[in-house]
Design a protein around this nucleic acid. Structure first.
Lengths: 214, 214
DNA sequence: TTCGTAATTATGCAAGTGTATAATTATTCG
DNA sequence: CGAATAATTATACACTTGCATAATTACGAA
């Protein structure tokens, strides 16, 4: 009578998959890939390691799906910001940039998560495809916003502008997430707006929406 | 007579430390932090695992010193580019930007290395200090170059300009390293020059040195 | 209620991990 | 040439990892 077998309730495929994916993402964000062991994942998902095999085949399968889920969430969130943005083309672009340079997007744990997956992305073709798709989706949203601006530029320039704006935003996001206390609150967003504006030759800062865009 | 004890020659502290550090860096670059086990490191350095303990105390000690060595090399290399750059302030800045957006700086393995360390940086205070110092050194070089430009701006603006230019360069470096085949050769450098120029309000592209700066 | 089945847990295992300790050997110094 | 010593290797160990397989148990259907 030493070991009472653990009680459990059946929660169905979807709930379990989500719980395991969420657990894996949390662990990678907190302690890097090394911290996301099958046992740690199972414990956090309040489940036994065997379920990982049952639902995902093996740990790599879970990791792949976790990455895909993460990227889907990010894209979805960006899309929501894009759709919610109102007003002129410039103010919509400004809102998009601002959202990318503030919490919860700028966040040390989010960056840890991103970095944790980076080396897997380099070695796994399937994951690299997901990464590339996500990157291009973001850039396309940006390009869409840029194209709507009242400017007169050759089409070839559009791609370059989008790449450049994407890069500033990425760089600021990275630095703000890696060294959070090195920047004043909203300093990143302001620099981002100024830089994107300068690159595109328009003014994004004297827009009314500087304070909030709920 | 089954096991002949392995022959060896004494190579002194410095050589062994360097070999072990180089081995650790290579392994992290190739396969991420998980690939840099004590046994793999020792094998690549043509040495036995015990030497890691002997020279670095433990694996974490080696990892710390490897990171420090990597960062020192990067800073040194940037410094060399800075010192070698000739001509007007604008052309020196252009050379600096260009060097940061071409191989061997833009390189998938270099990025893998950088990403591999990122999560350790978040958790280890000593490594975070090294990271912050390296980042600020790079930004200061940039700021120095920017300050020398023939512009008339308030001093508060200088810091912001440096942060912004650093961010574009970082972002372009990242994207070029993560998706090498997504960009034409030298496309990144051109976009970088155009963007930095736009942010600073000067022209960096019609400079003569566009082609080479050996 | 009973039974079948799929979801879930329990157990076991081979391989790999970092590190401590002991054994050896190359080199230096007298 | 011989002895001392530090550099290097060898061995051992406790722990962790991912995964396979077997045992159970919750739940739906008849």
């Amino acid at each position: 009578m030493i070991g009472e077998r653990r009680k459990f309730t059946r929660q169905g495929e979807e709930a379990r998959r989500e719980a395991l994916i969420a657990a894996a993402l949390e662990l990678i964000a907190e302690g890097g890939p090394a911290a996301s062991t099958v046992r740690a994942i199972a414990e956090r998902a309040k489940v036994t390691p065997g379920l990982i095999r049952h639902y995902f085949g093996d740990k790599e399968g879970l990791t792949r799906e976790a990455y895909r889920a993460l990227m889907d969430t990010m894209t979805e969130s960006n899309r929501a910001v894009l759709d919610a943005a109102q007003g002129t083309a410039a103010s919509r672009l400004a809102a998009f940039v601002r959202a990318s340079l503030r919490p919860p997007v700028v966040d040390p744990e989010a960056m840890g998560l991103w970095a944790g997956f980076l080396h897997m992305v380099r070695q796994d073709a399937a994951m690299r495809a997901v990464h590339e798709a996500t990157y291009l989706q973001y850039r396309d949203m940006l390009q869409e916003l840029i194209a709507a601006l009242p400017r007169d530029i050759p089409p070839a320039q559009l791609r370059r502008d989008a790449i450049a704006c994407n890069a500033v935003i990425d760089g600021l996001w990275l630095e703000g997430s890696a060294l959070p206390e090195a920047f004043a609150p909203d300093e990143l967003a302001q620099i981002g707006l100024a830089s994107v504006g300068a690159i595109l030759g328009i003014d994004l800062q004297t827009d009314d929406e500087t304070k909030d865009n709920t």
